[in-house]
């Protein structure tokens, strides 16, 4: 039991992802879908950060000690995933930005951002829809 609870941040990451996934599937409002997608990706950030944790670790600060050599202050978390996820956050933000840009255009062209209404309009205009 403690084994399962001990990795609670992984649970949170899964739950966050599932919430995002559910949002993409169930929500009919395009903006809500985009937000859900963001949530889904945020879950992944948490996953990356969680895997960097080292028991009792601190920030990876190295410093010069007495004899002139450079050493860490103590056990430290793996900095690499943090760096990676910084990139992933940027990507995620860009995805959200592109999504919103497209949604704005959809609003202009269709006059709505409800998935069902757009689908109905596409079907009504015929051709290419049926496959």
């Amino acid at each position: 039991m403690t084994e399962l609870l001990g990795i609670y941040n992984y649970w949170i990451y899964v739950v966050l992802m599932m919430i995002g996934f559910y949002g993409v599937i169930a929500k009919k409002n395009l903006i809500k879908q985009a937000i859900a997608l963001g949530l889904f990706q945020t879950g992944i950030f948490l996953f990356y950060i969680s895997m960097a944790v080292v028991d009792g670790g601190t920030a990876p600060i190295w410093t010069t000690i007495g004899d002139g050599s450079i050493k860490a202050l103590g056990p430290y978390d793996n900095p690499l995933p943090h760096v990676l996820i910084l990139t992933a956050i940027v990507v995620s933000v860009s995805v959200l930005a592109v999504a919103l840009a497209i949604i704005i255009n959809i609003k202009w062209k269709y006059g709505t951002i409800e998935y069902d209404e757009i689908t109905a309009m596409d079907r009504a205009s015929g051709g290419g829809d049926d496959d």
């Binding site: 996934f21 993409v24 599937i25 169930a26 879908q33 998935y115 689908t119 829809d129 049926d130 496959d131």
Partner: peptide, 19 residues
């Protein structure tokens, strides 16, 4: 009138399929 198997997948269905 349409044959459902060939009908376009809705986004939701697509996501369920991925899962």
């Amino acid at each position: 009138a349409r044959i459902p198997l060939f009908r376009e997948w809705s986004l939701g269905s697509a996501m369920v399929l991925i899962t």
